[in-house]
């Protein structure tokens, strides 16, 4: 699970105040809000790239508010994917496991399983430069999932994709959620993404105060 308990985050001049969101294991949460309302800031605070001024962030039931990003065990896919340009797709998937010094055979098995799940088995030797938008997002998703995080945070993962690719990615994301059983928090401003994917929908409003609504109310 991933939970924000009255989290206050400062980013430059604007402040997110007392944000409370809770997503259970295996649940797909979609956080909506207009551009610039602080959605990205909230995700950055969750993974430890930004300080939480007050309140708490919990991942898998553990308070991670003061932990380093590397110790939080939260999978993160930033908006542009931020793939490592010097690595192949296979190296991306293996990267977090190599850092954790897992055995070579185990890494290989996990890479193969993930590539299969994400439909990128044919791309394992390719570098980011030669990938399409959808392929890049699948790779970034695989990299964030490979170490079996308790929570998976996706920052507008589908915003740069064309309509057809987006539809296909809905299926990929649903499949991933079913197989990996992580708590997913997906940030977007698209209500069709929320309708297609969400178990629960949250709204972030006017930067300063965050208001949270349950599904039915929001859509």
């Amino acid at each position: 699970m991933i939970e924000f308990q009255k989290a206050t985050v400062q980013a430059g001049e604007f402040v997110l105040k007392n944000v409370s969101i809770r997503i259970e294991q295996g649940e797909y949460g979609v956080l909506m809000g207009p551009t610039g309302c602080g959605k990205t800031t909230l995700l950055e605070a969750a993974v430890g790239l930004r300080a939480v001024a007050s309140g708490r962030v919990l991942a898998g039931g553990i308070d991670v508010t003061r932990l380093k990003p590397s110790a939080r065990q939260i999978g993160y896919v930033p908006q542009d994917g931020a793939l490592f340009s010097a690595m192949t797709v296979a190296e991306h998937l293996a990267f977090p496991l190599r850092i954790r010094r897992m055995k070579r055979a185990e890494i290989q098995r996990r890479v193969d399983d993930l590539a299969d799940l994400l439909g990128i088995s044919g791309l394992l030797d390719r570098r980011p430069r030669g990938l399409s938008g959808g392929e890049r997002q699948r790779t970034a998703l695989g990299r964030a999932l490979s170490f079996r995080p308790k929570a998976l945070l996706l920052d507008e993962p589908l915003s740069a994709l064309d309509e057809e690719t987006r539809e296909r990615m809905y299926n990929v994301l649903k499949r991933v959620q079913k197989v990996e059983q992580a708590a997913v928090l997906h940030v977007t401003h698209s209500s069709s993404e929320a309708a297609a994917l969400a178990d629960r929908v949250f709204h972030l409003k006017n930067g300063k105060a965050a208001e949270v609504e349950r599904t039915g109310d929001a859509l």
């Binding site: 990003p69 590397s70 931020a82 850092i99 170490f147």
Partner: peptide, 20 residues
Amino acid sequence: RQEQVALTLGCGRGQAFFRV
């Protein structure tokens, strides 16, 4: 951004620098 993502994937600052 790439080094920041590397941190979330389990890297320390040094690993993010040398590997990414």
